[in-house]
Amino acid sequence: MKKKPNIKPTKEDLKDWESFIENINSIEDKDAPLDNSIIEKNNDRLFDIRKDLHGLKMHEALDVVSNTINDAIVRKVRKILFITGKGLHSNKEQDPYASKDLSLLRYAVPEYIENNFSDHVIKIEQSPIKLGGSGSIIVFLKKL
């Protein structure tokens, strides 16, 4: 007969949990729509909307991208930060039918934007290191 694993939390686990709960306010809200503290040199915001796509499946992420860009166009917002991640933790190796690169949001999101919103986009560029570097992009929309 197999022995059941001990699933009771240790004192150290409980201490870590208490510490986490006490400092929960320091955890960043990844879906915050606006971050006024990140300013360019000319006193202009680096982005107006921020969307974190971590953990989303490809179709979910592309739906979020589409909805966000459409919302930005309606609201006349010009800069969107999409955090795609770098693909380091994706499960692309487990699917023999998936492209090892194109299945990554980091490549698929800019291509999707170019293919579906080219009439509205001025440019897409990699964000500065402090905003995620190669794991995020900033989309610049045209004024309408």
Rank of each mutant, 00 (worst) to 15 (best):
W17P: 01
Y97G: 04
V121D: 09
D13R: 11
E40A: 15
K15V: 13
S90I: 07
I83N: 03
I129T: 07
K100R: 15
P110I: 13
E60W: 00
G85M: 06
S118G: 10
N116V: 07
I129Y: 12
S26T: 13
E40L: 15
N115Y: 10
L102T: 00
Y97R: 04
K143R: 11
Q126P: 02
I49W: 10
D16C: 07
I73F: 01
K30W: 14
I113P: 11
L34V: 00
K92S: 08
K15N: 15
L56A: 03
L144V: 05
E22C: 12
E22F: 12
K100I: 14
I122Y: 13
K2V: 05
K11S: 12
K8P: 02
K100E: 12
E114P: 04
R50A: 03
Y97W: 07
S99W: 10
H120N: 14
W17N: 08
K76F: 00
L104Q: 12
N115H: 11
K142W: 10
K41Y: 14
L34T: 03
E114T: 05
D101V: 07
T68W: 03
I83G: 08
D52N: 15
I129C: 02
I24S: 15
P9L: 06
K4D: 06
K100D: 11
L81D: 00
G133A: 09
D63A: 05
K41C: 12
P33V: 09
K143V: 12
K2A: 02
G87F: 10
K57N: 08
V65D: 09
H54Q: 01
N116T: 10
L105N: 02
L81A: 01
E28P: 12
L46F: 15
K51D: 02
H59I: 00
L53S: 08
Y107A: 05
D101P: 00
K92A: 07
K76A: 00
F140L: 01
S37T: 05
L56I: 00
E111K: 15
N36K: 06
I24H: 11
P5F: 05
K92T: 08
N67C: 09
P128S: 04
G132S: 06
V121Q: 06
I122V: 14
A61K: 01
V74S: 10
N116D: 12
N43V: 06
W17S: 08
M58D: 04
F47G: 00
H59L: 01
H59W: 01
E60R: 03
I113F: 13
E18N: 13
K41P: 13
I7T: 00
G132V: 06
W17M: 10
E40D: 14
S99A: 14
Y97P: 04
L53E: 07
S99H: 14
E22N: 15
N67S: 13
D31I: 03
N23K: 13
I21H: 00
I129F: 11
G55R: 12
P9I: 02
D29F: 11
I73V: 06
P5T: 04
P9C: 05
S90H: 05
L53C: 09
L102Q: 04
L104I: 01
K4G: 02
I83H: 08
L141K: 05
N6Y: 06
G85F: 06
G87I: 01
G132P: 06
L105Q: 03
P33Q: 10
